[in-house]
Design a protein around this nucleic acid. Structure first.
Lengths: 332, 332
DNA sequence: TTGTACGCGTTATCAA
DNA sequence: TTGATAACGCGTACAA
């Protein structure tokens, strides 16, 4: 069903049908009625591909995350999808698995499909190629992490301050030997959280104890085992993301260490079951949904020229959710 | 950068460039080399919109689920995305929130964008409209639930048998009063799981105790509270999905009921933290990733005419993962 | 108020 | 082996 089919059936020109479809004024009510009737009878639906080809607006955006099965990203994705739907945009889902090459291939695919914008959780590094896409007209909004060396809009959270507060809390509990388990220096979020950790330790005159290279739960468990095997193992641990929190937890349990009595634990990124686990986990909450929502709005506003041209950086607050794994009393 | 630009720069015709881009044989190696050089120098990338408009192949599919933040769906989505990427398809992410109208609007959006196929977790009912889309050429594969009244490919799991086995396990533990908490009769999966529950009870000559209307964790908690308030409350509960499992668990805890001593619990749909919770949860595992993978492959094979025309139904096995919440001994 | 003609970027046809 | 030209379905400029 094309405009032509409808036009023939209704005995008018293509353009007249087009006018009716797009609700333009200048059309005789009677003609409009007749055309409308045919339109719905033939179940005409505009070909958005053709529209985009003509008008340079695909009303489609790309969402690039590392792994949709990670609840943090799926929380973002959910919010992105909602905003996009409300505003009439389609979202193409891309998962980079933190791999720069996959990411780049996906960007290619998106550009070829002429998406108008990209919501990107950038994989480790090498985003120079994005600059070209940007100058070629692709709107880019960084999500969760800014893009190194590339000025774009970005929506991130208070990584440093949030972590610092959390580690201070452990110090307030009297811990003097506090470890940090993080994903890897390549990640912006890890670096920032590490900064916060260091600040808190320095303020208290404590020595740092850092283990990186924990990209997933099982390697995090490995790092934790290493820490426990030390001559003077830590009495508290800060886990730099949700996967690491789980890995650390499992390692502690396997080792028979009680939380928080033997080793206290605080982590970054709250998740649904954190309040159901025993002990309840004390975590730094970052608002995944708000992150996704703000980023999507920012991107679409950008696409619709509702924003001044200078890149905007939005930093959302984090909050320390105090439960029990830090050593605080169980809340009745 | 269009074919025309490249053609001009290389001093050949558009069609010749097109041939080179598409790797067609009949082109002089020298010309091809020259064109290739210009192609990469100008960073030409084909406009897939134009291609699709011409060739009727958008290499794009839609994925409609209820809620991407539910780990079951995000597990499916992850696998779908992987398969699609491998095979060169883009995935448009749609979340229906189990709402028939939202679903329908989304299908409209997808059709207008000329997606070739749809991977659908159908919301409650009213899918007659899909028949038209289907005859108009849209390939549809049902995911997790078949589509009532519409013959399509479908990839589902053993809901009935899996539940029956799980309930039998509770019976083997000596329970005589076993409740079922489910989402709603409108859902195929709820109905099938309810069937399995009933079969197991009937075989054992037990009376059923069913609570539905638990679309989310907090309403499931409500249903569980009702059950606990009964004169003779159940000694065991079957929770029909992951959200319900959590709701039930929370209600039990709030009520101070120990699991499994006071009330045993088995649920449908395993999740990452089930083995970390105390007690460890005994659950019917359904392979979300395999579900997504098989469905995506089925759809794409269908699109590429690699399948006989009759709709195919794939039923994946479920597995009872026995941990502790059923009353079995902790595994060291 | 309505219609004609062109162009978006591509592939397909057919002639050179 | 190459190229001119016509589609694909739509919107836009301009006429009628």
């Amino acid at each position: 069903m094309t405009l032509r089919d409808v036009a023939r059936e209704a005995g008018v020109s293509i353009k007249t049908v087009s006018r009716v479809v797009n609700g333009e004024r200048e059309v005789n009510p009677e003609t409009a009625a007749r055309v409308s009737e045919v339109l719905s009878r033939l179940r005409y639906r505009p070909n958005e591909l053709a529209r985009s080809l003509k008008g340079r607006r695909s009303r489609t955006i790309g969402l690039m995350i590392a792994d949709i099965s990670n609840p943090f990203y799926s929380g973002c994705a959910k919010a992105v999808e909602e905003v996009a739907r409300e505003r009439g945009y389609a979202v193409i889902l891309c998962a980079s698995a933190e791999d720069a090459r996959t990411e780049r291939e996906y960007v290619d695919l998106l550009v070829q499909r002429r998406v108008e914008g990209l919501l990107l959780v950038p994989a480790a590094d090498g985003h120079e190629y994005l600059r070209q896409e940007q100058t070629a007209g692709l709107a880019v909004v960084a999500l969760d992490r800014p893009i190194a060396g590339l000025p774009t809009d970005a929506v991130i959270v208070q990584n440093r301050a949030g972590t610092r507060r959390a580690v201070q809390h452990l110090i307030e509990h009297g811990h003097r030997r506090i470890a940090f388990v993080g994903a890897g220096k390549g990640l912006y979020t890890t670096r920032k959280r590490l900064e916060g950790y260091r600040e808190a330790l320095r303020e208290a005159g404590l020595e740092e104890l850092v283990r990186l290279e924990a990209p997933d739960a099982s390697s995090a468990a490995g790092r934790m085992r290493e820490l426990l095997a030390l001559n003077t193992p830590p009495t508290a641990v800060f886990a730099a993301n949700n996967l690491i929190t789980l890995g650390v937890l499992q390692a502690l349990e396997r080792a028979g260490a009680r939380v928080p009595e033997d080793v206290a634990l605080v982590g970054f990124d709250d998740f649904a079951l954190a309040a159901v686990l025993r002990p309840r986990l004390t975590l730094v909450r970052q608002p995944a949904d708000e992150l996704g929502r703000r980023a999507a709005r920012l991107l679409i506003d950008r696409l619709e020229n509702k924003l001044p041209p200078t890149p905007r950086r939005i930093v959302l607050p984090t909050e320390l959710i105090i439960r029990e794994s830090c050593g605080c009393q169980p809340n009745p």
